[in-house]
Design a protein around this nucleic acid. Structure first.
Lengths: 263, 263
DNA sequence: TATGCTAAATGGTAGTACCATTAATTGCAA
DNA sequence: TTGCAATTAATGGTACTACCATTTAGCATA
């Protein structure tokens, strides 16, 4: 990780912090983020047209575009082209978290072991929260998902089954009714499911008794039996992660196909 | 959240997925990310100069720069100017996670309640992990931090004390020796500490008995008594978060000053 | 009314020119 | 020869212009 060196004491405040000449686009980004944070810009609001805004800010259109581009990639704004187009403030994009995580992983900053370990621990809390809060709709969505998974298994459509699995974890996370938990676990799951996908695509034997395990888990969840549900999830994840650890390194690059974005 | 509508069944695959004309800079970003993921580009590597790379890719320098800018903001590359400058692949930037979280919060996608709740749960796991793995160096760093906190308290430097607190949570997370957990909890803590900072800056009365509580916690940690440590942390966080919830909404924009970046 | 064409707004891209910063090189002087 | 300063070259940062592509709205024609 590139953050801080193994600093033992952060005590003596540097007399001279490193100068970081702020580039135009950074200043622009900061100003827009500021207005967003202060609530002067809300989701749905439209920024002035590029040419006009560039003039207002007294910067070139290039610099402004780099700023907008950055904000777009950060999920803060959305750029629409054509008449009535422009830069619109978005509602935030949970997918960014996954992208950051994926980048960190690609760059070798975090390891599979760290991912699996955190996933196990966080998923644990997700299960407990879901156990306490899941609504009937949540249960039904999970049940329907398991049915789809069963169908995919019967058809031998193992890649579809992996897709179902991803959806399963998404639905479970959603049942916590806490978007932060949901986002975090989703970003971890996303990367690891990429491995599972690659493994299955490579002909690895699918997880046995998956359907039964899922049904058993759902039953515990419905019974609000957090301890049992956690135990089941825990052992399942351990078995899945065990397979990932013996996965050939070079295939680390395998990704899931991008999710279909619901407009 | 902007992700998926409350979809009940993701079953019927769309016959026509929405077309998403890929812009030049997206293609460039994707290609570079691809090479990073495949390991053909490693941290420290240098990309060709902008003018040259633009020619190789047969795109304008603008498009290329927008791509590089995006990757820079994502923490994937670092741009250095001057001779021997250029775009260098970085080792990942844990701070990006916090930025994403902050954006989501600013945009109103996630609430203080969701943040505090997830923080409590995840911090819980952090404490348990730290309890199991903290080294002597970790303990000493925490002890030194508490000493600094005590000094700041004695001097009435309450803002410094908030800084110390932030550092405390950072050190604790570091003691898990799992960077993923560490990053996640740091990003949550970052936002919430912003509130604490604003509160203290606004003259709010500081948390009483903080030092004693910290010392007690550290003792439990040293004794590897996870349950006690968790309980202590839990009650402390609850009391802190209780204060945040009755915090005036408009001040939600208050941020901590940017962290000094260790070069 | 419905259909298709036209025009205007706006983001996307290319290209050029120039500035600012940085590192290597050169050159002059001690 | 050594040391420091000026020069030069490489490279990102910015501005400006021109034009393309897409999208909406309005107009015209059947």
């Amino acid at each position: 990780m590139q953050t801080d060196p193994p600093v033992t004491a952060a005590a003596p405040p540097l007399a001279f912090a490193p100068i970081h000449t702020r580039r135009a686009f950074e200043e622009i980004c900061a100003r827009i983020r500021e207005q967003v944070a202060e609530g002067r810009l809300k989701p749905g609001d439209k920024l002035p047209a590029e040419r006009e805004l560039a003039q207002q800010l007294a910067v070139g259109r290039n610099a402004l575009r780099e700023a907008l581009r950055s904000l777009e990639m950060a999920g803060v704004v959305e750029l629409r082209k054509g008449a009535k187009g422009g830069a619109f403030i978005r509602g935030g994009d949970a997918g960014r978290l996954a992208q950051v995580m994926q980048d960190m992983f690609s760059l070798g900053s975090i390891s599979v072991e760290e991912l699996t370990e955190s996933r196990v621990h966080i998923q644990d809390q997700v299960v407990r929260l879901a156990c306490a809060r899941a609504t009937r709709a949540d249960f039904e969505a999970l049940a329907a998902n398991i049915d789809r998974t069963e169908a995919a298994t019967r058809d031998g459509a193992f890649l579809d089954r992996v897709e179902c699995s991803r959806e399963f974890y998404r639905l479970l996370a959603q049942a916590t009714h806490n978007q932060v938990m949901s986002m975090i676990v989703a970003s971890l799951t996303e990367i690891l499911m990429g491995f599972v996908y690659a493994r299955v695509a490579g002909g690895g034997k699918p997880q046995p008794r998956l359907i039964e395990k899922r049904r058993e888990f759902l039953a515990a969840l419905r019974a609000r039996d957090a301890d049992t549900a956690c135990r089941l999830m825990h052992t399942h994840l351990e078995s899945v992660h065990r397979l990932l650890k013996e996965f050939p390194k070079p295939l680390a690059a395998a990704h899931l196909p991008p999710r279909r974005r619901a407009a």
